[in-house]
Design a protein around this nucleic acid. Structure first.
Length: 146
DNA sequence: GCCAACGTTGGC
DNA sequence: GCCAACGTTGGC
């Protein structure tokens, strides 16, 4: 069971656009960082994750899930170094959880969002996932492949 | 818009 | 293989 967090600048690709992409989902292209890529390679179908708005908003706005395993990133022009998964929107976070709240909460002091500020695709611990869902007003958090 | 953090590149 | 220079990310 694993959870993840995906960062996106809303001016480049927003949660609204992700939702509009529907159940088919979209390729999470453009990641050019080895750690982030390795995280995507480790993902399984149905793994849940947060959709985070960087630069503007600075908050977790939605929950997504992996709907295709990692495959060559079509935006990488055949460069075999870069892979990505497909993700699709699962649900809104009714009360978006802000970076400020996360930083102010000692439960999240080890969270990658705090410790590895610049990593664009990062792992989320089970406890962190559940706590953020609670803060976000989600009664029954969708779980990764049970 | 600034700048700190940090990943990547390239000269040696 | 080291490390300085450079580029990018992303919070503020």
């Amino acid at each position: 069971m694993a959870y993840w967090l995906y960062k996106s600048e809303p001016s480049a690709w927003s949660w609204e656009q992700q939702k509009a992409a529907g159940a088919k989902g979209t390729e999470w292209t453009g990641v050019r960082n080895y750690l982030a890529r390795n995280n995507m390679r480790a993902m399984k179908i149905g793994d849940k994750g947060f959709f985070y708005h960087s630069n503007e908003g600075l908050e977790i706005v939605g929950i997504v899930e992996v709907c295709a395993l990692s495959h060559p990133d079509s935006s990488a022009k055949g460069d075999p170094k870069w892979d990505c998964v497909d993700i699709r929107a699962v649900m809104d976070v009714p009360k978006p959880v802000t970076l400020k709240e996360i930083k102010a909460n000692s439960k999240f002091e080890k969270m990658a969002l705090v410790t590895s500020m610049r990593l664009s695709v990062q792992p989320v611990m089970d406890e962190e996932y559940l706590e953020i869902c609670r803060l976000g007003g989600i009664d029954k958090p969708p779980r990764s492949s049970d």
